[in-house]
Simulated scan of single mutants.
Amino acid sequence: MIELIATIESVEQAKRVLEGGADKIVTGEAVFGLRLPGHLTDTQMAEVIAFAHKKGKKLWWRPTPFYTMTKLPKHGRF
């Protein structure tokens, strides 16, 4: 099975790519998303997650591996 996966940098872009047929979206946030084109606030992340789930789609939150071990306990909300 082929899946269309898109990296997003805003809530608006997430909605556009999911409506346009993406199966999954990938994002980060200010602390962990160092190698992504943008980041989402906690409020924006919650909005995108709710939208993706409503559409039956998935969101991957992608941390930057070398940086997360010292910061991970701070962000256990999602």
Rank of each mutant, 00 (worst) to 15 (best):
L36F: 02
K24Q: 13
G28W: 06
A52D: 06
R62N: 09
K74Y: 11
R35D: 14
T68Y: 12
Y67H: 14
F66T: 14
L34M: 12
A6C: 03
G20H: 08
I5N: 12
R16K: 11
K57G: 12
E3D: 10
K54G: 13
E47G: 05
E9S: 11
Q44Y: 04
P65L: 14
D23F: 03
I2A: 10
E9N: 07
I2V: 12
T7P: 00
Q13H: 05
L4H: 03
L18F: 07
E29Y: 12
V26E: 04
Y67G: 13
A14S: 01
M45N: 01
T7F: 10
W60V: 15
H39D: 09
R77G: 11
I5C: 13
I2N: 13
Q13R: 05
I8W: 05
E3N: 13
A6D: 09
T7D: 12
Q44H: 03
E29R: 04
G56H: 01
L40G: 08
V11E: 01
L72G: 07
L34V: 11
G20E: 04
G38I: 00
G21A: 06
L59C: 09
L4I: 08
K55Y: 02
E9M: 09
V48P: 05
G28F: 09
L59Y: 07
L36W: 04
H53Y: 09
A14P: 05
H53Q: 09
K55F: 10
R62C: 02
G21N: 04
T64W: 11
A50R: 08
T43F: 10
G20R: 01
E12Y: 04
E29C: 13
K15I: 08
G20T: 06
Y67M: 14
V31L: 09
T41E: 01
R35C: 11
F78G: 07
F78Q: 08
A30G: 10
M45Y: 08
Y67T: 15
F66V: 15
M69R: 15
K15G: 04
F51N: 03
W60A: 14
L72R: 04
D23P: 06
R35V: 14
V48T: 00
L18A: 02
P73G: 00
A46Q: 13
G76L: 10
T43G: 15
D42I: 14
R62M: 02
D42A: 03
E47Y: 00
I49C: 00
W60H: 15
Y67I: 14
A30F: 07
T70I: 07
A22F: 02
H75T: 03
E47I: 00
V17A: 00
T68V: 08
L72M: 10
V31T: 12
L18M: 05
V11Y: 03
M69W: 15
T68C: 13
A22K: 05
D42H: 13
L18E: 09
I5A: 14
K58T: 13
H39A: 09
E9I: 04
A30W: 05
M69F: 15
M69G: 15
